[in-house]
Simulated assay, not measured.
Amino acid sequence: MKKRQLGSSDLYVSEIGLGCMSLGTDYKKAQSVIEAALAEGINYFDTADLYDFGENEEIVGKALRSVREQVIIATKAGNRWTDAKDSWTWDPSKAYIKEAVKQSLRRLDTDYIDLYQLHGGTIEDRIEETIEAFEELRAEGYIKYYGISSIRPNVIREYVQKSNMVSVMMQYSMLDRRPEEEVLPLLHEKGISVVTRGTVAKGMLSDRMLEKATAKGYLDYTPEELEEILPLLKEKLAPSRSLTEVAIQYNLSNPAVASVVAGASTVQQVKENARAAGAALLAQEEIQLIRSITKSNKYEQHR
């Protein structure tokens, strides 16, 4: 599988990353999915301390222990479970992040984290303090690089201006083109990579498209619009290939994107995602066709 440089770092991530949130808590099943990903050439594994109360990190660390030096482990912090574990609070403070990383290192059973990400962020945060925490963790050798996971343009701009982050994880797809106009060009210009999530739009950009569409619609698409647009995308762009393939290739066609993080709970899903990454590139005419069929959404909030 092809690899792309992550921002200005020396990390080269596979074009498909494994989103580990959907692995579940059955270790043997999760291990089979992770081993399938390794067999497909996937080297980028994304988790978070929030997932399954930290058990996800434990599973990922255990499954990757024998290949630790050959893989890139990304995890996240900032969401703090309550004692009752029935909800979480937002805590991007320096004190919390510097404690959270130690717990993640213990669960992952590793001496360092390749990419440590802020799991959200608001414009009201003490952003300089958060950046200071990440910079100190780098200097202390706990993490190699850091980034944020955010769709908020105002927060992203602050980190672009004030930090040495190498990546931003964000939702992006053919149905959610909000980052295209203002966020992706900015990050590309600054040499900061994008790692995408939500690429198949909750399954709507797959061959189960209408089955996955909801009565509420999706973003600014009404259910009626989805019923029209999804079959049209399939007809025009994927008559002899999967819509998932088109969706993944659409994201990878943007020069700001380094990797598409795709969740998988079965070996078959891993193989399908890997096959999609290795498929033929979209022609410029196909990209333009996608943009003519779908909406050029805009971020209305977080200004």
Rank of each mutant, 00 (worst) to 15 (best):
Q5N: 10
S8G: 13
L11S: 02
S14F: 00
S14R: 02
S14P: 02
I16V: 11
S22H: 11
G24S: 09
I42W: 04
I42Q: 06
T47N: 02
T47G: 00
D52T: 13
V60I: 07
S66L: 09
S66T: 03
E69W: 12
Q70R: 13
T75I: 05
S93V: 04
S93C: 03
A95K: 11
K102W: 12
S104G: 05
D111N: 10
D114E: 14
Q117Y: 03
H119W: 13
G120C: 00
R126Y: 10
I127F: 06
E129A: 12
I131A: 01
F134Q: 01
F134I: 09
E135C: 09
E135H: 05
E136M: 04
L137M: 14
Y142C: 15
S150A: 06
I151V: 10
P153C: 04
N154W: 13
R157W: 13
V160I: 11
Y172S: 01
L175A: 10
V183Y: 02
I192D: 02
T199Y: 05
L205D: 00
R208A: 12
M209N: 15
A213W: 03
L219S: 12
L226P: 09
L230P: 01
L233Y: 04
P239L: 13
L243V: 13
N251P: 14
N254P: 12
A256S: 09
S259E: 14
G263N: 10
E272D: 12
E272H: 08
G278M: 13
A279Q: 11
A280F: 10
T294F: 03
E300G: 15
